[in-house]
Each structure stands twice: as C-alpha cells, then as structure tokens.
Amino acid sequence: MFQPERFSINHGKYSAAVEVISVAGQTIYRVVFSNNMQMLILTRATNSNAGRFWTSVPEGRQELAEEVGALIESNIRQKA
C-alpha cells in the first residue's frame, strides 16, 4: 500500500537509493547517497515555457538535481 517505490541509481561518481514518496499531496524523490553527500530531495517542476525540469527542494543544488533527475527519469523509462 505505502510505496515507497524504491530503486537505485548509479553514476560514475556515486550511487544512491531513491524513494518515491507522496508528501503534502505531491510527489517527491528522496535520494540517499552511498557516499557522504547530503541527502537530496527532488521534485519535478514546470518552467514558464511549460517545460518540465527537475529541481531540488529547498533551492540550492540545481546542478545536482538535474543530474540525478536525469538518472531517475531514465530508470523510470526503463521500467515503463
């Protein structure tokens, strides 16, 4: 019943466990890295041109958010 749906992602520099959680009615991705990097929370957002992008919540780790978001997206597509 309660997901978190869970999966792991691997990047050359790190690997991480990802949990998909619904919080306050919205989907977030909780990313726990296997090294000492601080946990990252991501969500999908919409920019002013109606394009979708990955962003960290809170702000401040956008580059990593886009990198990890792309890995998550690729994982989700593989499963679909």
Binding site: V23, M39, T43, T46, N47, N49, T55, V57, R61, Q62
Partner: peptide, 29 residues
Amino acid sequence: YYNGQKVTHSEFIRLKNLEKALANYDFLN
C-alpha cells in the same frame, strides 16, 4: 525564479509551499 529556473508565480508558490512542508517533516531525515 526557483533554483535559477524561470517559473510562473503559481509554480513558485507551489514549490515554496512544498519546501515549507518538507522543513516540518523531520522523518525524512
């Protein structure tokens, strides 16, 4: 702008609200 991305006012408010909600959820950490 949110995280350097241009977003609408409503999207900005949604993301800021999410931020506040998450800040109250200690169990995520």
